[in-house]
């Protein structure tokens, strides 16, 4: 058993990948919790998909691809906001349109600009083999910066995400707070891109947070418990990826979902199975079956 855990550590890339996994577990849980409480989960997904054109252009121009990703990611959020404020369209429709269009543009640009060295498959699904020491430092820097900012601005962020109108009415600069959140989401996406892949980042962003949400009743606790869940998921995902030779992204995502499901069933306060006594449990299952039949 111990060998099972230690053996992969003899490879340098695995040590890097695991270091990143731990950092991402924490970072994604903290940033993702803000997404969840603001009902902005899909916004995380939009930004994640939308970094692609930026990657391609930056690669083509020979500049740091993170910069391209950052510009494209924040731009997508601004386009969503623009469509929403200038039309009667609801935000979910605007997001669906922007997400698919940016992704399409990204794929097109990768082909057209012949930035084929940018391995599309790895960007979409994550690849631990590609993790370099530079990536680890990168992720560490992003994680520390964002955690520090969240700590500094926590009371304002709490107010804004709970009651945006109230926050605005008491004079908080909510546009800046919103832009700050968007920037934090984009940076988190950039940090996670390499290991989780842009298509699946959303899982690591919201999965640990909602799992924690089933267990605790305050935002900061949600972030803390979520970080633990996130670390467990990303680290064990890395091991699955290593032993079964599957892309790291899907491996992490499936562990996230497994942990969520377990919590949904067994959470002491809100678990489906724990809140019902044995007899009512069978009645509940029958009721659900009937419900399904009726549909």
């Amino acid at each position: 058993m111990l060998d099972f855990l230690i053996e992969p550590l003899s490879f340098e890339f695995m040590r890097h990948a695991l270091a990143i996994a731990i950092l991402l577990g924490i970072l994604c849980s903290v940033v993702g919790s803000f997404l969840i409480v603001q009902h902005m989960g899909m916004m995380g997904d939009v930004i994640a998909h939308s970094v692609l054109p930026g990657l391609s252009i930056a690669f083509f121009l020979g500049i740091d691809i993170s910069i391209g990703a950052f510009i494209a990611g924040t731009l997508s959020a601004l386009v969503v906001a623009l469509i929403r404020s200038q039309s009667r369209l609801k935000v979910d429709t605007a997001m669906a349109l922007v997400l698919s269009s940016f992704l399409a543009l990204g794929v097109t640009l990768i082909k057209l600009l012949k930035t084929n060295k940018l391995d599309l498959h790895n960007i979409l699904f994550g690849d631990i083999l590609g993790v370099t020491p530079g990536d680890v430092w990168h992720t560490l820097a992003i994680t520390i910066t964002i955690l520090l900012l969240v700590k500094l601005f926590y009371k304002e962020l709490l107010f804004y995400t709970f009651d945006p109108l109230g926050a605005q009415a008491s004079g908080l600069p909510i546009t800046w707070i919103y832009l700050g959140l968007i920037a934090a989401i984009t940076l988190t996406v950039i940090a996670s891109m390499q290991t989780v892949g842009v298509l699946l980042i959303i899982s690591l962003l919201i999965g640990p947070g909602i799992t924690a949400y089933l267990l605790v009743k305050e935002l900061h606790l949600m972030m803390g418990v979520g970080a633990v869940v996130g670390i467990i998921a990303s680290v064990s995902g890395m091991y699955f990826s290593y032993y079964w030779d599957i892309p790291s992204g899907p491996a992490i995502v499936l562990v996230v979902f497994g942990l969520f499901l377990l919590t949904l069933l067994f959470s002491p306060s809100q678990g489906i199975l724990t809140r019902l006594s044995a007899t009512s449990r069978s009645a509940w299952i029958m009721q659900q079956l009937n419900y399904l039949k009726k549909r």
Binding site: V37, K155, T161, F162, D163, K217, E218, L219
Partner: peptide
């Protein structure tokens, strides 16, 4: 929203 009474008033 995951927040307690105390923290709402503290806002």
């Amino acid at each position: 929203y995951p927040i307690t009474v105390w923290n709402v008033v503290m806002m």
